[in-house]
Amino acid sequence: MTELRQVFQVPVKLLLRVVQVPRSTYYYARSHCQHEKLDDSPIIQAIDEIRQEDSKYTKKYGYRRLTKALQEHGFTVNHKRVLRLMHEHDWLCLAYNRQKRKYNSYKGIVGRIAPNRLNRRFKTDRPYQKLVTDVSEFRYGGMSQSKRVYLEPVIDLFPGEVLAFN
């Protein structure tokens, strides 16, 4: 468009109408083509030096920690750029202390489904007519020593009290 404008000496508005390009597209392309690609080689070299330090933990640095280290070394760099460079050079670390995925044993319909006899009628006028139960899982301890406890109460719907539990 810039070359056509210089050749024909016409206003941009007319040229855009002839070529059938939206005005916003032209100005967007014009503003973005002027940006030159930044040279990543000094940052790549600095990341490699930081990762090669004596400490055994530096190779496990994530992009956030590396961004902070680069900023301490005097670089003005965004975390997204560091992440992109780490992707390109396969330097992403697998976090050694990340949380484990929650276990879920549900695989759809398993076993026999009891008939729905309550039909959402949870009120009753006499005790021991409607008894319900459920199983709840509780975890305690740290991530490395996680233990599970299961609670199974039997509840009478008349007073709403727990009759027994296991």
Score class of each variant (00 low, 15 high):
3 E>I: 11
4 L>P: 02
6 Q>T: 15
7 V>C: 13
10 V>K: 04
10 V>H: 07
11 P>E: 12
13 K>N: 04
16 L>M: 09
16 L>G: 01
17 R>S: 13
20 Q>T: 14
21 V>A: 10
24 S>T: 08
25 T>F: 05
26 Y>E: 02
31 S>I: 07
33 C>P: 04
33 C>H: 12
35 H>D: 02
35 H>Y: 04
35 H>T: 03
37 K>R: 09
41 S>A: 10
42 P>W: 03
43 I>T: 02
43 I>L: 09
48 D>C: 06
48 D>A: 08
49 E>V: 07
49 E>W: 06
50 I>K: 00
52 Q>G: 08
54 D>V: 08
56 K>P: 06
59 K>G: 07
61 Y>P: 00
64 R>F: 03
65 R>L: 01
65 R>V: 01
66 L>H: 00
68 K>N: 10
68 K>H: 13
69 A>Q: 07
71 Q>D: 08
72 E>V: 14
73 H>Q: 10
73 H>M: 08
74 G>C: 10
75 F>E: 00
76 T>E: 11
77 V>R: 01
77 V>Y: 01
78 N>T: 02
79 H>S: 07
80 K>H: 08
84 R>A: 07
85 L>S: 03
85 L>R: 00
87 H>N: 12
87 H>F: 09
88 E>F: 07
91 W>Y: 05
94 L>A: 14
96 Y>T: 12
96 Y>A: 13
96 Y>K: 14
97 N>K: 15
101 R>N: 07
103 Y>W: 05
103 Y>H: 02
103 Y>D: 01
105 S>A: 11
107 K>S: 15
107 K>G: 15
109 I>E: 15
111 G>E: 05
111 G>Q: 08
112 R>N: 15
113 I>T: 12
114 A>H: 07
114 A>R: 09
115 P>K: 02
116 N>S: 11
116 N>R: 09
117 R>A: 06
117 R>H: 13
118 L>A: 06
118 L>E: 03
121 R>T: 12
122 F>P: 03
122 F>S: 11
122 F>L: 10
122 F>V: 09
125 D>R: 04
126 R>Y: 06
128 Y>D: 14
129 Q>G: 12
129 Q>M: 14
